[in-house]
Design a protein around this nucleic acid. Structure first.
Length: 328
DNA sequence: AAGCTCAACAACCGCCGGGTT
DNA sequence: AAACCCGGCGGTTGTTGAGCT
């Protein structure tokens, strides 16, 4: 792995970054003009780390000035979060971490922060990079669409799958519309746990990301239903989901981090357990369709995933160090 | 040795939601 | 209620080094 701290910085340049105010007009992100960009030097790292050690995290916008850094706050935050934080684990992604990433990705889609939140010591950026450079290719090589986790359409060229809409021109159309701050509100992290029906309808109509949000909303919906002790009449979502009805709107509930966490863990572990059994029984590829998807599909009406051959190959239920044991 | 290509990953960008004033 | 600030997210880009010709 390259060490950016030792990287030379020929391209380091002085510039300003911008952000938008509510009216859409660009305003300087950093008051100070002439901020540094590019790779961080060891000296900058030291300044930042020692400052945060002294004063703690937060107030990122003013932190650079207080710490004596010629960086914008965002850059400082990113550097700290992705590299300098003591809890950040460096080095190779272990097989069981990879396995967990795959399963979480199928559950959550490109929700890197959510995925990272369940893999101790790994950052969203690291997982995102690992996915884009390793796992998505691995899946494509196995004939699996990394976006949907379904078998590739034979007519679909691998280049079509490369990166999810990388062009900026496409961003508006192809970028996943966020479901009511999904990363923090809908499924995790905050206590609100609310899913907005309107928003769900919006993103369910997004062709490019249908599966992803079917998954998410189905989980969320099933989850809120579970919380509600709803009877067995959980409304199944088909592959051509039509959105959420007003009646469903009434199901919108609040969930706690702990309960969602347990729920997610149960899905993950159900799958792991099923995979182990499947390996023991040496069943065919069809049987490899893992239990997570089975459970999810049964409970929430989801489609099945297909990458179990990769996933189960890495998984050892008896491994005392397996990541699942850390997930809590 | 030089030039080229590609993989890896750190860093940047634009956008958004929540909180505060 | 509106404006603003802040932190966070996901997508994308830029830089570097390794491998190949």
């Amino acid at each position: 792995m390259r060490n950016p701290a030792t990287a030379t910085t020929p391209a380091t340049k002085l510039t300003t970054t911008t952000t938008r105010n509510n009216s859409g007009a660009k305003t300087p992100c950093c008051i100070k003009v002439g901020l540094k960009r590019g790779p961080w030097t060891p000296e900058e790292d030291e300044l930042l780390a020692s400052y945060i050690k002294r004063e703690g995290e937060g107030r990122w916008r003013t932190l650079p000035k207080r710490a004596g850094l010629l960086r914008c706050g965002k850059s400082c935050r990113l550097r700290w979060m992705n590299y300098l934080r003591p809890s950040v684990k460096r080095g190779q992604i272990a097989p069981d971490e990879e396995d967990l990433i795959l399963r979480l990705h199928r559950l959550l889609g490109n929700r890197w922060s959510l995925i990272a939140g369940r893999i101790p010591g790994r950052t969203d950026n690291e997982i995102k990079n690992y996915w884009n450079t390793h796992l998505s290719k691995k899946l494509i090589n196995q004939g699996i669409d990394p976006r949907t986790h379904k078998p590739l359409n034979p007519q679909q060229s691998p280049s079509d799958l490369k990166a999810p809409s990388s062009s900026k021109a496409n961003r508006g159309a192809a970028t996943i519309p966020k479901p009511n701050n999904p990363s923090s509100s809908s499924l995790e992290e905050t206590s609100s746990g609310q899913i907005t029906t309107h928003k769900e309808n919006e993103y369910f109509q997004s062709n490019n990301t249908l599966h992803q949000y079917q998954t998410e909303a189905a989980i969320a919906h099933g989850f809120t239903s579970l919380l509600n002790c709803e009877d067995s009449g959980i409304e199944m979502r088909s592959n051509q989901d039509q959105g959420i009805s007003n009646e469903e709107d009434e199901d919108i509930n609040y969930c706690t981090d702990d309960v969602f966490s347990s729920f997610l863990n149960s899905l993950i572990n159900e799958e792991a357990f099923a995979n182990q059994n499947q390996m023991q029984q040496q069943t065919n590829v069809t049987a490899h369709a893992d239990a997570l998807v089975s459970v999810t599909a049964t409970t929430f009406g989801l489609v099945q995933g297909w990458e179990s051959p990769i996933m189960s190959s890495n998984f050892n239920q008896n491994d005392p160090n397996r990541v699942n044991d850390h997930v809590n």
